[in-house]
Structures are given as structure tokens and as C-alpha cells.
Design a protein around this nucleic acid. Structure first.
Length: 477
RNA sequence: GGCGGCGUAGCCAAGUGGCCAAGGCGGAGGUCUGCAAAACCUCUAUUCGGCGGUUCGAAUCCGCCCGCCGCCUCCA
């Protein structure tokens, strides 16, 4: 698989699209920078998570076994402040937002990671302490004012990820209180000395709490090992977060930290940067409560290349809704094959379509070209259905199976919508009763009556469609 | 100020030197239908922000200009 048709993926470390080769032949070890859990994640966060999910699903589609770790940052200034204001323990407070994250991610069909380490989990605090000790031993860290800092001078490769202009970037950096404790302005805190009222953990180098960057290094090294394959996050994390992760990890282990860095661009809302002050800040939950389907939401988030800013608009959601609906309508008419095992198309046309699909995604995840293949298959299937001769039945089934296969990567079709309380057996029986009555009316050529029944059901959100084989119905959104 | 990205039809969006500039949404016409709806078919950018240049040939390379956005500080 991967030998003949390698994935080519942009590596932020080199700035180039490179062949993606995991360290072990069939396994991909993947780390995702997750949320800081002081608030519910917004659609910007989920653009990144959906982008990473697409990458993971494609790797799995290609046959890799993926081991994914996604952390939660549950100790920092914002979580501490939030918990204090809410009068809750830090643990309880952050747990709430972790649960909300899972609710939103599940709604969007984001596959679950295999591990969700939290910074304050005892085993990871211990791992962080060990990492700091190692850095102290190696002279890559120093103690000052009760805190421990990373000495950038001890790591000559600093700046490889975010570009050479590190000094320039830091020159304008605001001077904060602990600046005076540092040997160099670029040094960053690994372990913060305890302050009044803040959570604190004992350590050989003094009680305190982990600095921002330390947790990801510790958890990634602990769960995935040094030199793992993929480290993912939003573009904003490149500097300083990921730069610092690389520095502290490599200074501690003496080995390359990560093989391939994957960064997702941010999204814009109606052409503007999303921010609380502009009031264009949405959560997944809010949009779904407004009636946006999670499928349309996911489609919009997944349909723009991960390195391009995505302009999130109402019109875009509407377009996504229509596009997803067309595919779902076809799939609803063609039942899923009960055949087990991998899908091997017999039709050369179907095979070629899947080949082009894979080729598109192999090319640095070209989702636009891949989606074009989904719609190509859709057209083929619908054409087959229109011809409706028995000979074509198998062809339609294969095209539908191809769409379902491609959907393993996109995950946007046949998502179960919000359960409708009025969709019980009773309603179905009632609708079928109306359809029978309308059929009789049509046989009598009583079209006024037939149209009245259709209108009355349409007003209730049920669309009737007459086909040569009888009348079908579907729910309008 | 430093660094980076983008500007392709009404909207979204592929395409980075050479077949008719993918695909989706929308629109127009048609097939089917009692009428619809759905589906399918055809059409919908002689042109790729503007102006120059390189080339037999450029949306694709170079230069200048215009416009939009992001990063450089917490941030997915």
C-alpha cells in the first residue's frame, strides 16, 4: 500500500511537501495538541480537529494502524482563574469542559484518540518532573527565583520550525515580571514557582506547576516515544509552543523529537478573524441548536484545504447542507452491502475513481479533487438508477459502495442527525396511509385531492416524490 | 516595521508552463411527470486582481502596482 502510493504531506519543519514515511512500516504515532479546557471549544478549534481527523482517517483508509494521543491542558493561568471564579476545584472545572469537548467532537464525527492525557494526571506530572531533572542535569535548564527555565543557548537548533528570525520575534516581546529572573529573554519557563493560592506539586527542584510547553513534550514522549511520526496543531502553535517543545524534548533526549509537523490554518468568520469582541464566535453546540446539521458543519470544515484559511459563512453552510443532502439521498436509496471485508470493486470505472480519489489525497490532502470524485461517483450511481434496468443494479451498488468507502475518510455522509421525536412508528404509518389515499386519488384522476395531500404533508416537513415504482417520502430539514 | 499567505465564473473552490480552465452551490433551458419533486442531460470564466516582461506558448515563471488576510503577545 504505502510503498506504491505514498502520502505526500507538507512538513512544517522543512516547509516542503515531503513523502510521509512513519518510523515503523505500518504504524503511525500521532500527537494532537488539544484544548486548554477553560471554555467550550469554538468552531475554529474544531476546524483544526476535523482537519487532523481527516488526516488520521485517510491514513487508516490507506491501511495504517494509527495510534493517536490528544492532550488536554488543564492547568494554566486561565483554567486556574476560571476554577477560582466558579468556586470549583481545578479538576472539576476542567473536567466539565473536557466533557463538552467530547460532546462536540462526537457530534462532528471526530474519531476518538486512543489516549487523552491531562497535564495534571499524576503520572504525567511525574513525567514532567523527570524531564525537568534531565534538562537540569544536562545543563539545558537552570533554576532562578524558585522557577526553572530552559536555556535556549544550550540548544543551537532553536528556531528551526518557526524560522530563523527568533531573536527579532522576541525583541518586541513584552517584558513581564519573571523576565528579570531569566538569563536571556528568549528562555522560557519549564516549571513555575508556587504562587499564593495556586495549585502546586512537589518536585526536587522546588514546588510549583508545569510551564505551558512542558506537558506536551512529557506526555508525547511518555505515550509515543521519541521520534514519533506526526505532531499536529493549529498554525498559531508553531511559535513559541512547538518550537519550545522541540527544544526541551531534544535537549533532554538527544534524539529527534518528531518526524513530521502538521499545522492547520485558522478559519475566518464571514471574512473576519474570529474573536469574542466581534461577536462572531460560535460553538458547535450553538450552530446545531440553530438547526445546522452536524454533517453540513463537518463538510464545510473538511472541504477546504488544511493550509488555507477557511471562510466560515452562512452561505457556505447552506451550500454544504445541499451538497451533503444530495449524496445522502442517493445512499438512502441504495442499501449498504452486507458483504464483509475490504471493498474491492469489480468495475474498472469504479476502481479508477477510487484511484483518483487516493491520488488526490496523497497529494498533500487535496480534498477538493477528492470530493470531485465523490460527486463523480454520485452522478454515475444516479444515472444507473435512472436507467433502472436490472442489468445495472450491480453497477449502482458498486458506485454507492465507492462513495461509502470514500466517506470513510470524509465522514460527512450518513451521519445520524439529531433524533426527531416525531419520527416514530406512528408517524411512518400515518404517512404511508396518506400515500395510499393519494395513490387512490391519483388513480381516480382526482389531482386536486392528490396535490392537497402532498401540500399538507409538505407543510409538516415531509416531501412526497412520485417515481415509476410508486411514491416515496423523505423528511425536509 | 519584520515574516508569510491569498486574489480563478453570482458564491465556495481545484488547477503552478502546452489537451475544450476540475468539482460543489446558485441560475437558464431540456428529458421524465397529470402537475410537482428528485434524478439525469445541455448551457452558465475566449479568461484567471492590474500593468509590464521572459517564452513558440503563462492563471501557472520574473518585476512593479492594487486589494484582502494572518503571524510576530494568550490563542486551534
Amino acid at each position: 500500500m504505502s510503498d506504491l502510493r505514498p502520502l505526500r504531506l507538507r512538513n512544517s519543519l522543512s516547509g516542503r511537501v515531503e513523502r510521509f514515511d512513519p518510523a515503523r512500516p505500518d504504524e503511525v504515532r500521532m500527537y494532537t495538541c488539544g484544548l486548554t479546557v477553560y471554555a467550550r471549544g469554538h468552531i475554529g478549534n474544531f476546524r483544526t480537529f476535523v482537519g487532523q481527523d481527516l488526516l488520521r482517517r485517510f491514513l487508516e483508509w490507506k491501511g495504517y494502524r494509527v495510534l493517536q494521543v490528544q492532550n488536554f491542558t488543564d492547568v494554566d493561568d486561565k483554567t486556574i482563574r476560571g476554577a477560582g471564579e466558579a468556586g470549583e476545584t481545578l479538576r472539576d472545572y476542567t473536567t466539565r469542559f473536557i466533557e463538552l469537548y467530547h460532546a462536540d467532537a462526537d457530534a462532528l464525527g471526530v474519531r476518538r484518540a486512543h489516549h487523552y492525557p491531562r497535564a495534571t494526571d499524576p503520572e504525567y506530572i511525574a513525567a514532567m518532573v523527570r524531564l525537568v531533572e534531565r534538562l537540569l542535569e544536562r545543563g539545558a535548564a537552570y533554576r532562578s527565583g524558585g522557577s526553572v527555565y530552559f536555556r535556549i543557548a544550550a540548544y543551537p537548533d532553536y528556531g528551526r520550525l518557526s524560522g530563523a528570525a527568533v531573536e527579532g520575534r522576541l525583541a518586541g516581546a513584552r517584558v513581564d515580571a519573571d523576565e528579570y529572573d531569566k538569563e536571556s529573554a528568549a528562555d522560557f519557563v519549564l516549571w513555575k514557582a508556587t504562587e499564593d493560592g495556586e495549585p502546586t506539586w512537589d518536585a526536587p527542584f522546588g514546588a510549583g506547576r508545569p510551564g505551558w510547553h512542558l506537558e506536551c513534550s512529557a506526555m508525547a514522549l511518555e505515550l509515543l516515544g521519541s521520534g514519533f511520526d506526526l505532531h499536529c496543531g493549529g498554525v498559531d502553535l508553531k511559535f513559541p509552543h512547538h518550537e519550545n517543545e522541540i527544544a526541551q524534548s531534544e535537549a533532554a533526549t538527544g534524539e529527534p523529537f518528531v518526524r513530521h509537523w502538521f499545522h492547520c490554518e485558522h478559519l475566518l468568520v464571514e471574512g473576519r478573524k474570529m474573536s469574542k469582541s466581534l461577536g462572531n464566535h460560535f460553538t458547535v453546540r450553538e450552530l446545531i441548536e440553530e438547526g445546522v446539521s452536524s454533517a453540513a458543519l463537518r463538510y464545510l470544515l473538511a472541504s477546504v484545504h488544511y493550509r488555507k484559511q477557511l471562510n466560515f459563512t452562512r452561505d457556505g453552510l447552506r451550500q454544504a447542507e445541499t451538497a451533503v443532502g444530495r449524496v445522502n439521498a442517493l445512499l438512502a436509496r441504495v442499501p449498504e452491502s452486507s458483504a464483509s471485508g475490504p471493498f474491492v470493486p469489480a468495475d474498472p470505472g469504479v476502481r479508477a475513481c477510487l484511484d483518483r480519489f487516493e491520488e488526490a489525497l496523497n497529494d498533500d490532502l487535496n480534498v477538493s479533487r477528492a470530493l470531485a470524485e465523490v460527486f463523480f461517483a454520485l452522478r454515475q450511481a444516479n444515472q444507473g438508477l435512472n436507467r433502472k434496468d436490472a442489468e445495472d443494479g450491480a453497477g449502482v451498488a458498486e458506485w454507492a459502495a465507492a462513495i461509502r468507502s470514500m466517506n470513510e475518510v470524509f465522514g460527512v455522509f450518513e451521519m445520524e442527525g439529531a433524533p426527531d421525536p416525531s419520527s416514530g412508528e406512528d408517524l411512518v404509518e400515518e404517512i404511508e396511509g396518506w400515500i395510499r389515499e393519494r395513490r387512490d386519488a391519483r388513480r381516480r384522476r382526482d389531482y386536486a385531492r392528490a396535490d392537497a395531500i402532498r401540500e399538507q404533508l409538505r407543510a409538516r416537513g415531509i416531501a412526497l416524490e412520485d417515481t415509476p415504482d410508486g411514491t416515496t417520502w423523505r423528511r425536509l430539514d
